[in-house]
Design a protein around this nucleic acid. Structure first.
Length: 637
RNA sequence: GGUCCGAUAGCUCAGUCGGUAGAGCAAGUGGCUUUUAACCACUGGGUCGCAGGUUCGAGUCCUGCUCGGAUCACCA
């Protein structure tokens, strides 16, 4: 058989059926290019060959674990199994009564061993956490470690992987020496306790289960390179299960969580939030990820194309408007816990896809929602970490009570004195920071920029100097960074901007910021007391926005007007102004009960609870630039 | 995108003034076998991120690039 064209010369365009794809020919890399070859992998390959001669199939299909612990004996279950714990504790007590270097008395050990042996034959499986050179090694299931003992003198059998599990009584030790750090084995034997008090498994039968072809990470340091930790999360997880935990210095305030522990806490937080919502009668729903309109939040979307329908679709930036359609439809309490996508910057607190919990409750207002949010988060934090006070980057964060403060109060409270020389009537300035008299927000932005680069405001100690400065600010306005010049359309967004400049970063303890300007809250209901204020809050912890909620606007005509305002902002150049969703307006016209809703950023919450500085440390596979070898060229467009 | 920092053995890291490339772990061989980061002896292992430049000579100095981290701006 002869191919006139190379077998693997698939064109990307055909492969993906994308008319705009490049026509670059795909090249298939060699196995050796993907899995680096060196002296270490060569040794492992040789071991694997020799093992193959001893056991037959080196990648057998299964290993049946025993169930002495009541169900399948995973290593974690076995460690926590009561008789194992009791034997360990007994031995520890005996050891404590001994002098340094003294061995425990044989009778006491024998009695414990007899009891352990009476538990019966144990079969466990796992990955070797150390090289097999010694006769004591630990197996890990990714969480816990259990010690096994291979007795060279006494010998042990080798199970051949021939489908019938034939026992080779001779070659246990020979095979043992061919097993490498990181390989998977299954062992059968009985439990005993060592002189040092560790309950271990005495191996009677050894079965080879799978090979690690590449060397394991450093057992003391794990993987230090954050790039490898994130790109090859599997290696990072292995490293954290193999790593020898050393005692942290007392000053460090406890050990760092392993990668595995971080994601276990994440899972606990999520399951606790789900349980709490379900206990309160909420129902989980799934709304579209691919949407014809990117709306429900202010953000730039990812754009894609559906070939069959020949339409543009957007990865959703928020499920909000779909969830409220469901409230219209009669779901009084709904939630969705899933991914949102935003085509914006990547930073320590931003990933292009992030997990958001959104939920809506009919007949509730913003105050009820804050109460419920506080209670639910306290429950989740208590379950995940065992306490309501946590230590984050050196700050103690206390979740026992969440503060509430209006945006304006937060600005006044945190306003640095040295920023304040402009304003004889500061409160009036905050009511309308765009006012033309005295100083406007643009002058103000220049001033803040100046302060950041070391400008001393005390030099402006006379009225004349201030006026000169204001003129100066106007002249240098022309030369400042484009970003500084982004026009602000309303007093409300100006206040929000000042809030972000002066207050956001200092809100370390959990604080609900309330009384948001209506103009920047196009989906919120206005306050009955003040039509300029929305019944909206955001929750800040450690200077990070963690949640955003409000009394939902349910008047279809007003919602339409707010969308129209947003669209005119968009026309003026604000790319993030919200897009009009006609069907949503139609949905509201069927009648939506009064309701409150909230979105909670799960990744950020998990960052706080795991003391991680970067969102990438709490996302299993965060987005990174694709790997590219130096020799590879840019695909032609 | 701006600024600063980093890339050396499979892993974690040293490398002084520009002068033969180092350690621990891991690996190989032999020994030991109730150890706890096991131990003892010996051995192998390097395109110093990539490409240029300066120099008699570059891991080290200079320029550009790639990748990553921190930080600032947009953003949750």
């Amino acid at each position: 058989m002869c191919h006139t064209e190379p077998l693997f010369a698939v064109r990307d365009a055909d492969f993906y059926n994308l008319r705009f794809a490049s026509t670059r020919v795909m090249t298939i890399p060699e196995f050796e290019e993907i899995v680096e070859q060196n002296d270490q992998t060569e040794a492992r390959r040789e071991h694997l060959e020799r093992l193959g001669e001893l056991v037959g199939n080196v990648y057998p299909n299964k290993f049946a674990r025993s169930s002495i612990s009541g169900s399948e004996d995973t290593i974690s279950r076995l460690i926590a199994f009561e008789p194992v714990v009791a034997a360990g504790a007994k031995m520890a007590a005996i050891k404590a009564s001994l002098k340094e270097g003294e061995r425990p008395p044989a009778e006491a050990k024998d009695e414990l061993n007899e009891r352990l042996r009476s538990l019966g034959t144990v079969r466990i499986a796992g990955r070797l956490t150390t090289p097999s050179r010694g006769n004591f090694v630990h197996l890990t299931d990714g969480i816990g470690k259990f010690q096994i003992y291979c007795d060279k003198k006494g010998g042990f059998g080798l199970v051949r992987n021939d489908g019938a599990d034939t026992l080779d009584p001779e070659n246990g030790w020979t095979a043992w020496k061919l097993i490498d750090h990181g390989d998977f084995v299954g062992v059968e034997g009985y439990l005993f306790v060592t002189n040092t008090g560790e309950v271990s498994l005495h191996v009677e039968k050894l079965q080879f289960l799978a090979k690690a072809m590449v060397p394991m990470p450093d057992k003391m340091h794990g993987i230090a390179d954050p790039e490898i930790r994130q790109r090859q999360r599997y290696a990072d997880l292995i490293a954290s299960s193999l790593q020898v935990k050393s005692e942290p210095p007392a000053s460090a305030g406890g050990p760092d969580l392993t990668t595995r522990e971080v994601f276990e806490i994440r899972a606990k937080v999520i399951s606790s939030l789900r349980r709490c919502l379900e206990d309160h009668g909420y129902i989980e729903v799934e709304t579209p990820m691919l949407t014809p309109k990117a709306t429900g939040a202010a953000a730039k979307p990812f754009v894609t194309h559906h070939n069959a329908l020949d339409i543009t679709l957007y990865a959703r930036i928020a499920p909000e408007l779909y969830l409220k359609r469901l409230v219209v439809g009669g779901f009084e309490k709904v939630y969705e816990l899933n991914r949102n996508f935003r085509n914006e910057g990547i930073s320590y607190k931003h990933n292009p896809e992030f997990t958001m919990l959104e939920f809506y409750c009919a007949y509730m207002d913003v105050n009820g929602m804050m109460d419920f949010c506080e209670q639910m988060m306290q429950e989740a934090i208590q379950k995940a970490t065992g306490a309501l006070k946590i230590s984050y980057e050196g700050n103690e964060i206390n979740f026992t009570e969440f503060r509430r403060s209006s945006m304006k109060e937060a600005v006044i409270e945190n306003y640095p004195d040295r920023w304040n020389f402009f304003h004889s009537d500061f409160a009036a300035f905050l009511d309308d920071p765009l006012q033309a008299n005295k100083v406007n927000l643009y002058t103000y932005r220049v001033y803040i920029k100046e302060l950041e680069s070391g400008f001393d405001p005390t030099s402006l100690n006379t009225a004349e100097a201030k006026e000169n400065y204001e003129r100066f600010a106007e002249t240098i306005w022309e030369s400042v960074d484009e970003l500084v010049k982004i026009p602000t359309q309303s007093p409300g967004s100006a206040l929000a901007e000042i809030f972000e400049m002066v207050a956001e970063s200092v809100l370390v303890q959990p604080t609900f910021i309330i009384d948001y300007p209506k103009s920047i809250s196009p989906l919120s209901k206005a306050s009955p007391q003040n039509p300029q204020i929305a019944e909206r809050f955001e929750l800040f912890i450690n200077g990070m926005e963690v949640a955003n909620g409000f009394s939902e606007l349910n008047d279809p005509k007003e919602q339409y007007d707010r969308f129209v305002d947003q669209m005119s902002e968009r026309e003026r150049g604000d790319e993030e102004a919200m897009v009009l969703d006609e069907d949503y307006v139609r949905a509201l016209s069927y009648g939506m009960p009064p309701a409150a809703g909230i979105g909670i950023g799960i990744d950020r919450l998990v960052m706080l609870l795991t003391n991680k500085h970067s969102i990438r440390d709490v996302i299993l596979f965060p987005h990174l630039r694709p790997e590219r070898k130096a020799a590879e060229e840019e695909p032609s467009s």
